[in-house]
């Protein structure tokens, strides 16, 4: 009978050998995916090991002073990376300060307010922005953004906030502010496209529940939808931050490449990624090369620390929200 032959093959399937079971998919998919996951871990470990190993001369020569001193003098064999660290942090902070409100607001418009067709079109265009090479953003910064900043933004900032040390001194175009603005333009697409997806994933039932007690559409968005999507929106911000911290080309083109720490955002500065890109090819001497690699290790460490802090922040706020 047909049924007995089915029962026979089922019994056979239960007793099959290793090869047959591999063909069944479970074991082989486990091994393949495991291998890929391990590979990622190995790559990260290799990066750290290589950076650590190659920066040994600089670590031995300067130790923590590398992060605390500001002299960058290849001829004298003195290397202190504080100005670069400062530049990286300041430009990323400016970028986030501008990109987070703008990006999240755009995502709210696209997810909650715009008609679907318009939303899809705009999202497509915004995602295209994420694919523009960074050197193009650098050129855009030099030829479009810098003149605009010089003519409109700087006079406005000086007349309203001129009393703050942040906006004193003369402005030559290349500066922390310019680099921060270019970075902001570059990271906004990440925030918009990820946040929009997260907002769209908020269940309709949540929105309807708020509307049903008499909330307006905006109250629903602000009180219910945004908090629901909070951790995803934070995720998009960290993606943006990681990009801003590591961005090299566009920053190099507009930051001024001057290793100085100044309170004024209008002054030229330098960033870790920029100094490595600019000086690595011409670095002569073990200590010089090793110092640049050490700077790379510092950037890597900075990214990890900031991401870890961010994750702790998410965890803390979501737990607080759950128990409050």
């Amino acid at each position: 009978m047909a049924s007995s032959s089915i029962a026979g093959s089922l019994r056979h399937r239960a007793n099959r050998g290793v090869l047959a079971r591999l063909r069944g998919g479970d074991e082989i998919s486990y091994l393949v995916t495991l291998a890929c996951a391990v590979l990622i871990f190995v790559v990260v470990a290799l990066i750290v090991a290589k950076l650590w190993g190659n920066s040994q001369p600089a670590i031995r020569a300067f130790g923590w002073d590398f992060l605390r001193t500001s002299r960058w003098n290849p001829n004298g064999g003195k290397f202190g990376a504080l100005p670069f660290l400062y530049g990286t942090c300041v430009t990323s902070a400016i970028a986030l300060l501008i990109a987070v409100p703008t990006g999240v607001a755009s995502a709210i418009f696209l997810a909650e307010m715009a008609p679907p067709k318009l939303s899809n079109l705009l999202t497509f265009l915004i995602e295209l922005l994420a694919a523009v090479p960074s050197v193009i953003y650098g050129l855009l910064g030099i030829f479009m953004l810098l003149p605009l900043i010089r003519v409109y933004l700087v006079p406005a900032l000086k007349s309203t906030f001129g009393f703050l040390p942040l906006f004193q001194g003369s402005f030559y175009g290349v500066s922390f502010l310019s680099a921060g603005l270019v970075l902001a333009v570059m990271v906004i697409p990440f925030i918009v496209s990820v946040s929009r997806e997260v907002l769209l994933a908020v269940p309709t039932e949540q929105r309807e529940a708020a509307l049903a007690v008499g909330a307006t559409k905006w109250e629903t968005t602000w009180d219910i939808v945004l908090p629901y999507a909070r951790s995803g929106i934070f995720g998009s911000i960290f993606l943006a931050l990681a990009r801003a911290l590591g961005e090299t080309m566009a920053v190099t083109m507009v930051i001024g490449n001057t290793p100085k720490i100044t309170a004024s955002l209008l002054s030229p500065g330098y960033s870790i990624a920029a100094v490595i890109a600019n000086e690595f090819a011409e670095a002569s001497g073990d200590l010089y090369v090793s110092s640049l690699i050490f700077a790379g290790l510092v950037l890597f460490g900075l990214t990890i620390v900031i991401n870890a802090l961010a994750r702790i922040l998410i965890l803390a706020t979501s737990q607080k929200a759950a128990t409050a």
Binding site: Q206, A215, P227, A321
Partner: peptide, 22 residues
């Protein structure tokens, strides 16, 4: 609604929400 849809807030805040928006 068909599917219970409490907000991811506390029990108190769920009930109080309608009062707040009004």
């Amino acid at each position: 609604f068909q599917k219970s849809n409490p907000f991811p807030k506390s029990i108190f805040d769920n009930v109080a929400y309608g009062l707040r928006v009004n």
